[in-house]
Design a protein around this nucleic acid. Structure first.
Length: 355
DNA sequence: CTCCCGTGGT
DNA sequence: ACCACGGGAG
């Protein structure tokens, strides 16, 4: 890569020029409130804008300030996050809010370095907040920026590697205009999401195509280079939907697996034998095994789930309640089910049951 | 099916 | 340096 400062400047200028006619209209644009910016950025991590938008509205309405979020119960925050995935984001969001409210007098850190100390805030998010809210000249490097820079400057480093992160951050920080870093950060990300899109970008309409390495070298399809080496684990889950009158048996998922903090049912997994569930002790009657198989795909796991329904006679309710208490299960009234934060797979199952 | 996407733990 | 972590769109 051999570019002069003047060529970097020309690039930045063109990106900013493009942005003036093509900005995305996002609800947090124009605000300087670090809380709202932080909220939107955490929601948008690994998430498309269209998918994240309704969650952003739900969160700002329910928690207009960091104090409101800090005072909310974690279960409520997770329930509001339900369906968005990567649930550690919601847990970190909530614990950060508590930290900021209690330890920082409700005030956000005002520098990149300070922001970086917040759980769930890495270099991308710290740069975004620092530049949008405080005008600090730190360049954001998200998927859009990787793509735009790799194509325009012809960088062939595998963007999944840790080397690439340093290389692209260093380049982006060299390019970013010191006098309007926030504007430039928004501009390059919008350019990536609307013009320099991942598949089949319309280079003919792109004002930067004349000086774009990928376009000139016919390498638009090859850049950025991304070597994917995620191996997908297949898992077979069998859920027991155990009912006793109006009460269902639920399990709050613990750490060390997917969906931490969310609720699902007692589970038996072939490859990972769990303790046998003593439904016989409660004279459970198997009502049915649902014929439908639920296939749920995560980035790193393929889940095949089946469900069976068990009914426990009311007379054994006390005994069941005691067992649940001991084993970390919960008895939840049918009306309360909606309030539990559940993985999409469980929501899909319940929807099929008309719940 | 394939692709997209930031952070944290180790 | 590497891998775990969800869900949606094409």
């Amino acid at each position: 890569m051999n570019y002069k400062d003047s060529e970097f400047q020309a690039f930045s200028h063109q990106i900013l020029f493009w942005y003036r006619s093509n900005p995305r209209d996002l609800p947090w644009r124009g605000t300087q409130d670090p809380y709202k910016i932080w909220l939107s950025e955490i929601i948008l991590q690994q998430t498309r804008v269209a998918q994240g938008l309704p969650y952003y509205y739900k969160f700002v309405n329910q928690y207009p300030t960091v104090k409101d979020l800090a005072l909310a119960p974690q279960e409520e925050v997770l329930r509001l996050w339900q369906g968005l995935g990567y649930y550690s984001r919601a847990r970190n969001l909530h614990s950060c809010a508590i930290y900021i409210y209690k330890e920082l007098d409700g005030k956000f850190p005002t520098s990149y370095e300070g922001l970086l100390k917040l759980k769930g805030v890495g270099s991308y998010t710290a740069s975004a907040i620092a530049s949008f809210a405080f005008g600090e000249a730190k360049a954001v490097v998200d998927g859009n920026v990787f793509r735009v820079l790799a194509r325009y400057f012809g960088i062939e480093t595998d963007i999944a590697s840790s080397k690439a992160k340093k290389e692209f951050e260093s380049l982006a920080n060299k390019i970013i205009p010191q006098d309007e870093p926030g504007e430039f950060n928004q501009a390059i990300m919008d350019f990536g999401s609307r013009q320099c899109v991942p598949l089949n970008p319309d280079c003919e309409s792109c004002p930067l195509s004349g000086s774009c390495f990928a376009k000139q070298q016919n390498m638009v399809k090859e850049l950025p280079v991304k070597i994917n080496k995620v191996k997908v684990k297949e898992r077979n889950l069998h859920y027991y939907v155990v009912k006793c009158g109006n009460e269902w048996v639920w399990k709050k998922r613990t750490s060390g697996d997917i969906w931490e903090g969310l609720f699902d049912f007692p589970l038996s997994e072939k490859e990972k034998p769990t303790k046998a569930h003593p439904w016989e002790d409660f004279e459970a009657e198997e009502i049915q095994e649902y014929p439908k198989k639920y296939r749920h795909i995560l980035s790193h796991q393929k889940l095949n789930a089946t469900f069976s329904e068990l009914e426990i006679p009311q007379k054994n309710k006390e005994k069941l309640a005691a067992w649940c208490e001991e084993e970390g299960f919960l008895l939840v009234n049918e009306e309360q089910i909606d309030y539990l934060a559940k993985p999409k797979l469980i929501v899909n199952f319940l929807t099929d049951q008309g719940i």
